[in-house]
Nucleic acid binder design. Structure first.
Lengths: 153, 153
DNA sequence: GGTGATTCAAACAAAACTCTTTGAGATAAA
DNA sequence: TTTATCTCAAAGAGTTTTGTTTGAATCACC
């Protein structure tokens, strides 16, 4: 079995991920490792959640390590957020490396799933690097402002 | 403060990372958040460890998601490991996308710090993708085989 | 030598997470 | 309908992690 040292995955989680990756169904995996399909499902879900956490962690650190950071509150319009990027850039003598249309799609991509009606439904942390790059971290939900029920499908 | 939702960093850890990133010393951060410099050091270390864990997690998942995976035991010579890559590729009808010298430096880069005397000091998980790419995950220490004291500087 | 910045180990309580079981549903195909 | 596959919530016991304190140590620099 693959090593899990200094990883946020447990041995059990890697065990399940490996077998699932090889094409076995949850029931087959359950038999192989001696437990129930329901348990395999739970472990697999925990593993997936951990992988998502790892991705978000690196994105957050990447954003925080920019020389300027600021937070955009949930409910902000996309256009306003873009203005905030440029004005913070001006204030800190950073020339943003994107023109307005570029920045729009650059920001829209990672935020698409947290947006609706041209508004962002989450607090967003934005970082500006020395050389004008823009980094984004979609943060926690803020239903009070956005007026959306995140849990609904 | 930046959101830490669905992240493996705690609020405290992000708090410290943010202030440290802004250039404050550990003592200054300690005063700001009302604790000791020694504590700030500990929290910062935990945060760094978590970031490393996140990186290793993604590398492991990347390796595991390859269509063929196998493990190279600690103590293996670099040359033997490279032969293993090609022979597994042959077995599974995967044409490795690197020639021998390329593969050598490609594998040496991520494994350099775990190597000595042309041997690897750790178990290494290797994944081969459908299109011949090679992925590497340096695993747990195995001092019994490698005969090295990892803790020594 | 002294000083500022940082690191480290040990210990502890509180908090978070893990795997598991149980029992119930959801979905889609035969 | 039956079957296979997968999901979900709640609850429990066990393990791990976290933040913290204390006291000592390291390192670079004046």
């Amino acid at each position: 079995m693959a090593a899990v040292d200094s990883t946020i995955l447990t041995e059990r989680q890697v065990e399940v991920l490996e077998l699932r990756e090889q094409g076995y169904t949850q029931q087959e995996v359950a038999e192989k490792i001696g437990t129930t399909d329901s348990n395999v499902s739970a472990v697999e879900r925990a593993a997936t959640k951990n992988v998502e956490k790892a991705k978000r962690t690196l994105r957050l650190v990447d954003t925080l390590s920019a020389s300027v950071t600021f937070e955009v509150p949930a409910g902000t319009h996309f256009g306003d957020m873009i203005e905030m990027v440029y004005s913070h850039g001006d204030t800190c003598d950073i020339k943003i490396a994107y023109c307005r249309p570029e920045l729009y799609s650059y920001l829209y991509e990672p935020l698409e799933k947290y947006s609706a009606g041209n508004k962002i439904r989450r607090n967003v942390e934005i970082g500006l690097t020395h050389d004008g790059d823009v980094r984004v971290f979609p943060g926690e939900v803020n239903d009070a402002i956005s007026g959306f029920d995140e849990t609904r499908q």
